[in-house]
Write a protein that binds this DNA or RNA. Structure first.
Lengths: 208, 208, 208, 208
DNA sequence: AATGAATGAGTATTCATTCAT
DNA sequence: GATGAATGAATACTCATTCAT
């Protein structure tokens, strides 16, 4: 990566970080491109050299942030979790636990992701994000970790979908507003439910 | 109710319906107040006699639509469902089934509610909506139907929260985009999971 | 004055008082007719039964307030001032002194009058104000007090004009902001200047 | 100054001139920003690159116009007035005379300044006006001309204040409406009064 | 006389986007 | 590549005034 390219990547990163800061502080609608550019220390016109418009940077940002969170979670589980010894449900719960803790620690991130993440963006994932080429995309890393393919789980994608949606939708109010209960109260129920979801997909189990 | 009040209620309803139409067709951000007013056949200034701004009408609309859906569902279950003979899980599943079918039949409603409904708005519910006085609010109707209080379920509000979030978040992509699977494929998993959630709250059961 | 008329006069007075309150608090431009009416406890449409528009009520108010101030001043001087024994300059200074004190005590009144009073309105005076008929207008009362006509002063109207403009323009900043000096510092200079103005008009004196 | 900056200064000047024209013709309240921009031949949005709002341009305009008038007057007196030979009172009267004549010749300027100039704005003066740096500000030029500091006058700022307010308030009706007398009739009285004001501040004189 | 619902013209202000430098 | 001046469409919101009741 040459000096100029580095410079470009830095500008892009600066824009992404500034945009994240503003989007989470003031909301996407209330943030103007002029503001992002000014705050990032570049000229307004320069923004358009890097992103098509506000929604472009927002989508990139969501993929980037959600992807980073997942990859971090996967790495942590791998490092500290004696991954191989744990059963799949335990590995998933460890992952979810890490993510919940990360979201509790960074409520701006929670707000931003929950309000904007959709399964579609999740699927497209980071591929068009910062590192435009190379780099296994995060979903692979994620699937690999879970070794889902090796274990003959039924409809593994549905299983991931159900868990993802369940966790992200139930955490939002619990973490932000302790509604209808705080996270500590809620977590046992959430974990229990996740186990129930996984069970349905176990090789020998059948749904309903 | 005098002639004038009748007229006012009609105007308000007309505005709500028009706004719903536009919000679901073009999106909330892309809809201007001028447009709502024009489409509803009233003057721009008149809008402000009924709603404070676009977000006011949007919130009223969400409560109103979500409330109506729930009340309809509850009534249907009561009428056709031999409510008394059914166990609580079966009653809840019947309710969810009705709602899923209603959302499948009205995808605009699904898009609008899913994108905008939050647990907070759900809790406040319809009380400040159209019928400003009288009328038991819909949440009561809903709780009554479930007879939750009589059955000594553990943390019933958490149970409702988990089910609500789980259903609304998983249905969105499934109904609209058949992602990651169509509704028919998904439903057994969803129902099974709901039963698992309820089980945790049964009088003798314990969570995790 | 019948009961209905009294009612009308009360409504008018209520409107005037409310308008004065709002004009001095928020400024004329920033006060809407709807606000005046609401604050006065009458319907918006009713406003138009009493005043043509906002500028109509503002002008009426200026005449009314300025007139009241002058008449009060004249009466005070007459009562407590041993008017007859005082020379004309002394009578005028007593009058000015009373007015300055009144304006110091009621800065809203000062702001309102100074910003809006013009010699034109002063001349038209109260005649179209509240008491639409009868009642010698306040300027007569004022001239009478000064007995200007009896004393053969040269160009008495110019004299009054010079004094009025001088006092009202110099008091504004002094009272409100103590700029460029507070009233106590300024007053000797103002009084001395007024005496100089009067001297030019004395029967035997000549200007310049 | 680069080409762009030159262009910017021209746009600003164009806006100021257009705004003055409209403000004096139609009044400040009745002039919209859209109108100023259109008349100045620029886009509506461009206005906001140069001024914050209508009141910003109005204030800048007052300082600018009043400052220009004073500086012009001071220069004229210096050039044609044998300044050094004239006594202070004569210098001041020459200045006032020039200003009165200028205002008689440009009644729009008179209306605009009289209705809007306050001692506060006068004090802040032109410093933030067009020429943002350099340029002795006009008050200095003015004070210098009068050589007030050298002559040990008592409370010179009060003296200037009294004269300024007296002249500007008495000229308004006289020039515009010949009320209560035309300028020629009034001028001897005004000049005489100014001399009386100055006298109070003379080194050996005492007020009152 | 009194009301207040309805009107719609009017205005300030923002902002994404372009393009000459 | 980078800049930032210029644009003008878009939009929210206000408010004086009317008029049917």
């Amino acid at each position: 990566m040459g000096k100029i390219d580095l410079n470009k990547t830095q500008k892009k990163l600066s824009l992404l970080n500034t945009a994240f800061e503003l989007f989470t502080t003031k909301g996407v609608n209330e943030t103007s491109i002029a503001e992002i550019a000014k705050e990032a220390g570049i000229a307004k016109g320069t923004f358009y050299l890097y992103f098509r418009d506000k929604y472009d940077i927002r989508n990139k940002l969501i993929s980037y942030k959600a992807g980073t969170l997942l990859i971090d979670a996967a790495e942590q589980v791998k490092l500290h979790g004696h991954t191989e010894q744990l059963s799949l449900p335990d590995r998933i719960l460890a992952l979810v636990d890490y993510i919940i803790k990360a979201l509790q620690a960074d409520k701006n991130l929670l707000m931003f992701i929950s309000k904007n993440l959709s399964w579609g963006i999740f699927r497209e994932s980071v591929q068009d994000s910062l590192q435009e080429e190379g780099d296994d995309n995060f979903k692979n890393a994620f699937y690999d970790l879970l070794s889902l393919t090796e274990e003959n789980y039924k409809d593994p994608e549905i299983m991931i979908y159900l868990i993802t949606e369940f966790v992200s939708s139930t955490c939002y109010n619990a973490i932000l507003y302790s509604e209808p209960a705080d996270m500590d109260t809620l977590k046992p129920y959430i974990f229990h439910t996740i186990r129930a979801i996984i069970e349905q997909h176990e090789p020998k189990a059948s749904a309903e």
